[in-house]
Simulated assay, not measured.
Amino acid sequence: MNWVARAPGLQGLEPGIAARLEGLPVMRLPKGKVLFCPGEAARGFTILLSGRVEVFLIGPTGREILLYGIEPGQSCVQSTLGLLGGEDYTGEAITVSECEAVLVPRETFTTLMDRSPIFRRFVFGAFAQRLQSVMALLERVAFQRVESRLAAELLASAENGAVHATHHEIATRIGTAREVVSRRLDALAKAGAVRLDRGVVTLIDEAALAGLAAVDGGAG
């Protein structure tokens, strides 16, 4: 099966365009591979066929925040900005699972944007969805209390009632410092909402966490 047929959003491409894309190789990427770093120029447009990539912003002190995740059918806003506007990357992208991806070189990307309405619609559609998710992240960090963001993250990432992550990893995902997460988790544990073990947060009172996640307030 050709890879273009597997790529969400690329169905119905013009025959010549589809053939040109089909000639590009599929890359198999291991978990933990760094795809780009701050200051690098965009080499091309990545189409993810399987797996997940996460893009982080890293501050001057080394603190990280998860900007967004990329799954098949979604795009990297930083790559699109780099290709269309010439901006260097400001974040770092890392595979968090084994991935299959295709890199559309810069020159090919520019040609397809000019010649293919379907490819252009795919790029801008995915770009718009990604911008919406980034705006939602900014709203949460700016206007939702840390306790609410933490509770929502615990509920969203729990598997079989437990979250297997360090305090640093949780902090990165909700846009705050590890020390803040540790203090908030300790408070939740004392309240009986969670149990803390090394690298594991077990959810004890999901109803209480859901109530907390629904409460908005000033930035924490």
Rank of each mutant, 00 (worst) to 15 (best):
E169S: 08
F143E: 15
R149E: 06
R173P: 06
E169G: 05
R145E: 09
V146M: 14
G161Y: 05
H167Q: 13
E153G: 12
A162G: 12
H168Q: 12
R178Y: 01
G175Y: 06
L155K: 13
E169M: 05
T176N: 00
L150W: 00
V163W: 09
H167K: 07
E169Q: 12
S148N: 07
T166M: 05
V163L: 05
T172D: 08
R184A: 11
G161E: 12
R145Q: 10
N160R: 15
A171Q: 04
I174K: 02
E147L: 03
A156T: 13
R173W: 10
H164F: 14
N160C: 15
L154I: 07
T176L: 03
Q144S: 07
V146R: 02
A165D: 09
G161R: 08
A162N: 13
R149P: 01
L154M: 05
I170L: 12
A156C: 11
T166P: 04
R178K: 13
E147V: 07
V181I: 06
L154W: 05
A171W: 01
L150F: 04
R184Q: 06
F143D: 11
H164C: 15
N160H: 15
A156H: 12
T166A: 10
R145M: 07
A171E: 02
A165L: 09
S157I: 08
Q144K: 05
A152L: 05
A177L: 14
E159K: 09
R178C: 02
A151R: 06
A177M: 09
L154H: 09
T172Y: 04
H167F: 11
E179V: 01
L150Q: 02
V146W: 03
A165V: 06
R184T: 12
L185D: 13
A177K: 04
L150E: 03
T172K: 13
I174V: 12
R178D: 02
G175E: 03
H168T: 09
A162F: 14
A151Y: 10
S157C: 12
T172F: 02
R183F: 00
H164T: 15
T172N: 15
A151K: 11
E147T: 09
V180R: 00
A158T: 11
I174Y: 08
A151H: 06
V146E: 04
R173C: 04
A165F: 02
S157M: 10
A165W: 07
E159W: 12
A156N: 15
V181K: 00
L155E: 11
Q144D: 11
A151G: 10
L155G: 13
R149L: 04
N160L: 10
G175V: 05
R149F: 04
G161W: 10
R183A: 03
R183D: 01
D186Y: 00
H167S: 10
S157E: 15
Q144E: 11
E169F: 05
Q144P: 06
L150T: 01
I170E: 03
A165H: 09
I174W: 04
E153R: 13
H164W: 11
V180W: 00
N160T: 14
A158Y: 07
R145T: 12
A171K: 00
E147G: 08
Q144I: 04
T166Y: 02
A171D: 03
L150N: 00
L154E: 09
L150H: 02
R184H: 11
E179K: 03
A152V: 09
A177Q: 10
S148W: 03
N160Y: 13
A156W: 08
F143L: 09
